[in-house]
Amino acid sequence: MTRRLSIAGLMVAMFLGARGPASLARGDGFNDAVRTIEQFYHVKHQNIPFLARAGMKAVGTAARIKGGDYKRLAEAGSVRVVFFEDQNFDSHGQIASFKAALQNTLGAEWSPLVQTLAPRDEEQNYIYVSAAGTKFYVLVVTIERHEATVVQATVAPQVLADLMKDPGEMGKTLREDATINDN
């Protein structure tokens, strides 16, 4: 009986193994994305002392710390933001390599939704989505020549549905909602 169970277990393990480790292990997309940017561009993110579990209030706090004009992220359950400012983001003509590196780091559980690249201006926008129970994690990576932002927000499906109508604007909308305060 034990042997039969072992064989059955082995077969199940082989089946699950064939699906790849990414479907079993859940990584932290936010930190992975930040680390990939730092390694590829040799830059360091600025630490903003918050983890916006309380959502809007914490984003507001971060806004005040940063001294800018910020707006809350409507409908978000949680928001995480990292800024890179006054640094050099030069891909040296290898922008596609960064795209591939980011995808490899995030793994299969993060689905690439929209990616826009403009190598001449070193502009890149990436939006990834991952299931979060009944909601979705949305990861937005925005890179320009001298600055970058990584935002991860939890959004309800109806919010995602609205944003999906115009995927090209989705990243901009989420990034601005997470980092601009209209108070």
Partner: peptide
Amino acid sequence: DALANKASETVDVR
């Protein structure tokens, strides 16, 4: 995807 290095603008939606 390799065309992204040569293109002035790339849009990829999935």
